[in-house]
Write a protein that binds this DNA or RNA. Structure first.
Lengths: 234, 234
DNA sequence: GTAAAAGTAGACGCCATTGTCTAAAACGTC
DNA sequence: GACGTTTTAGACAATGGCGTCTACTTTTAC
């Protein structure tokens, strides 16, 4: 019953830890297999093998395949949600060094929320089974991209309010920031490969440079003198 | 019953036309079912039902499920390829009315290549079965996004050469153009829904505006005097 | 009109998978 | 060491899909 959360050992220190470990092992294995094979293609036996657990144990914890599936999705979505929240809290607040700070933020966002295991899983599953489970799709959309854009929009608004950016539509700008950040990684994202740190850095750099060319107010960055003219006039 | 009609009346005008119609009917139905259910989840019986054809007929034309699958992928890829080529040939060449022309181009690209039936099918299939059929993924990547970026890169280069754009890295700019164009449509693209013409127009407008803010040279548009300084100095 | 080719319907064997059941083993607690 | 819970391994029926086969009908070519 009290499986989730940290190794809590609540409930009078029952055999909960063993059970909890099994459950997590099953969830991880199931996520792996579901992600690779899709719901229809995944077999309980394979999940059991990957989890190093007997098939019956899976049926003990989750009555049927579908129950296991939704449990996996919930589990991954919770993790991904927490990670997204954590990354969003590192969005730069100061107008100085904006390019570097935004770049570092874009790297964190891509690395920890979009190109990581959970991001890949959710994208693939939503793509694969989204039509069959509309609720799954809707829930993911709201908690994932929805929250991301809303939050980013507000954060960009704060920077704009400080005079660091010149944005007319914050929502559009937020979506464009994410889109630009993914522009160079699309292929890897689709394949599910994990980009190297260099690739992440370069992609983020390209994205932020273009984003700031479109929305930046160079003067705020250095102090208050006309900027970037050198680049343009050159 | 002989709607599509490719130039296939070879073979002394045999029964090819009837066969051809059946084949296409099967291919269409199979694309539909494979797209919705994935390879593992798709059943030959369902495909036969959708195609209004007996199961045996499918086995007559394509020896087994996998043969049918690759035939479907090839078929859709050929269509998508032709469409991409056709759309790319409408890329604007003149520097006047660049914003409107680029917007119209982005609309065409999104509508006919990315948000259409074939685009959805390929994206979903590549996502779903890409790891199981690396060849499929690679082939799609080269002929689809690869060609698109290469071509766009060259076309942007021509505009830049004419002084209409200020681009340092054409490849990056091409990817960003596509990414910006999709920014507002990501959700619909993932779900496979078809955006309305208004949504397409608005998304393209937002994308091109930002793209031109980053890469545009307003002077070229009007006549030929130093540009963008007004925007920056303001 | 006739004969060959293509398409149909249905039955069939085969195999993988799901989900249940049972009896034995492992584990943790007292 | 004894007890209850959990896990395990394997057998089991039921289901459903794949791919084959056969006998029948329709279409097409000449």
């Amino acid at each position: 019953m009290k499986e989730h959360m940290t190794p809590a050992t609540r409930m009078t220190g029952h055999t909960q830890r063993g059970q909890c470990a099994k459950r997590m092992s099953i969830l991880d294995a199931a996520a792996d297999v579901f992600c690779r094979q899709g719901f229809a293609g995944a077999s309980i036996d394979e999940i059991a093998a990957v989890a190093c657990v007997s098939r019956q144990t899976i049926y003990n914890h989750y009555r049927e395949k579908e129950t296991l599936f939704v449990a996996v999705v919930e589990d991954v979505m919770n993790r991904a949600n927490a990670m997204l929240f954590s990354v969003l809290s590192t969005f730069p607040e100061r107008a100085e060094d904006l390019e570097d700070d935004l770049t570092a933020f874009a790297v964190r966002l891509n690395k920890n929320c979009i190109c990581n295991h959970d991001g890949k899983f959710l994208r693939k599953l939503v793509q694969t089974e989204g039509e069959r489970y509309p609720h799954l799709f809707e829930s993911w959309r709201q908690q994932g991209p929805g929250k991301l854009i809303t939050a980013l929009s507000a954060l960009l608004g704060r920077l704009a309010h400080k005079g660091a950016l010149a944005i007319d539509d914050f929502d559009v700008a937020a979506r464009q920031f994410v889109a630009l950040g993914n522009a160079d990684l699309q292929m890897m994202i689709l394949l599910g490969a994990t980009p190297t740190d260099e690739e992440l850095e370069k992609a983020a750099r390209n994205a932020v440079r273009t984003f700031l060319k479109a929305y930046g107010r160079p003067e705020a960055e250095k102090a208050g003198h006309p900027p970037q003219l050198a680049a343009i006039s050159g």
